[in-house]
């Protein structure tokens, strides 16, 4: 087990290097350099050159990249051009907001998605099933920016139950968590339902019934554990995705999380900050996938390493 984890972590490094290289090239290809974006049009062209030289932006891109990687290995991810602060400090400041939102959203997704999926499967083709499934379909297909704005309008502006934007108390997280969680809940409910229906056709379900077990025990103990294998994997990856920052949700609800600083960094061509946050998000996704694999092995004895 430990060996497997170490192997996965070692494999993660080349992935991180590759991601930052691609990002580096992409940022050099797109028009607009950080100095011009920061200084706007009133600045003299000579001054731009001076700044570029000073920031090392005139060096060949591979030299820039090499320096970046070497510094990053030492734990130095550079300074934000715009905010003039350490990138790692900025990320660590933003991350708790994202974690909070991710946890709330995941709780919404699990506590709604899983029961909805089970009920739908057990009551297949009934009104309950149809209602749950339409609701999930809406969650999956409504764009967050639209659902988010509508909810803000209804619950914050019209009804005044909840604050519109901000991040000052748990109350502020209710709407963003529902918007974000609804989406994941929809996927979870649909996957749970279809897997459970599939598993219920298996011979071992007939065996369980033939043993004299009640229908509830058959579903919960014999079917659900098998049906949840792919669902748990997906849930782990969803959480990784949520921890990587929900760009839309954070922007709409004014939460200064990872997604927000990444988008802001993109707008200002704040390369060190953008690099740093993208690398951080990549690392989280890699860890999420690893956790998903480990969970799968933990739940399914057939792929457990002897």
């Amino acid at each position: 087990m430990a060996k497997y984890i170490i192997k996965r972590i070692l494999v993660a490094f080349p992935v991180l290097v590759a991601v930052s290289l691609i990002l580096f090239i992409m940022l050099n290809v797109v028009p607009g350099d950080p100095v011009t974006v920061m200084m706007r049009e009133h600045i003299k062209p000579e001054l731009i050159e001076v700044f570029k030289e000073r920031m090392g932006l005139n060096e060949p891109i591979f030299v820039q990249f090499g320096k970046y990687v070497l510094n990053a290995l030492r734990g130095d991810f550079g300074m934000s051009y715009k905010l003039k602060r350490d990138v790692s400090a900025l990320i660590l400041e933003a991350f708790p907001h994202t974690i909070k939102l991710a946890i709330y959203a995941a709780l919404v997704a699990w506590f709604i998605g899983i029961p909805a999926g089970i009920f739908s499967a057990v009551k297949q083709n009934t009104l309950v099933d149809r209602a749950f499934m339409s609701f999930s379909l809406m969650g999956v297909s409504l764009p967050v920016f639209w659902a988010g704005l509508l909810m803000q309008y209804l619950f914050a502006f019209k009804l005044g139950w909840l604050p519109v934007t901000g991040y000052y108390s748990p109350k502020y997280y209710v709407l963003p968590a529902i918007v974000l969680g609804w989406q994941s809940a929809g996927t979870i409910a649909r996957l749970t339902r279809s897997n459970l229906l599939e598993v219920m056709k298996n011979d071992y379900i007939r065996t369980a019934r033939a043993k004299g077990l009640g229908e509830a025990v058959v579903v919960v103990s014999h079917a659900l554990k098998n049906a949840m294998l792919p669902v748990v994997t997906m849930m782990a990856m969803q959480v990784a995705g949520l921890l990587g920052g929900a760009v839309m949700t954070e922007s709409i609800f004014g939460i200064p999380g990872l997604g927000r600083i990444t988008v802001d960094a993109m707008g200002t061509r704040d390369m060190p900050l953008l690099q740093g946050s993208v690398l951080f998000i990549t690392a989280i996704i890699i860890i999420g996938n690893m956790v998903a694999d480990l969970l799968y092995a933990f739940l399914d004895p057939r792929i457990r390493v002897e």
């Binding site: 298996n202 011979d203 071992y204 007939r206 065996t207 369980a208 033939a210 014999h222 554990k225 098998n226 739940l299 399914d300 004895p301 057939r302």
Partner: peptide, 13 residues
């Protein structure tokens, strides 16, 4: 009952 397929008639988990 004993069923035909002993592989699929037992719960794998």
């Amino acid at each position: 009952v004993i069923f035909q397929e002993p592989m699929t008639s037992l719960n794998p988990v």
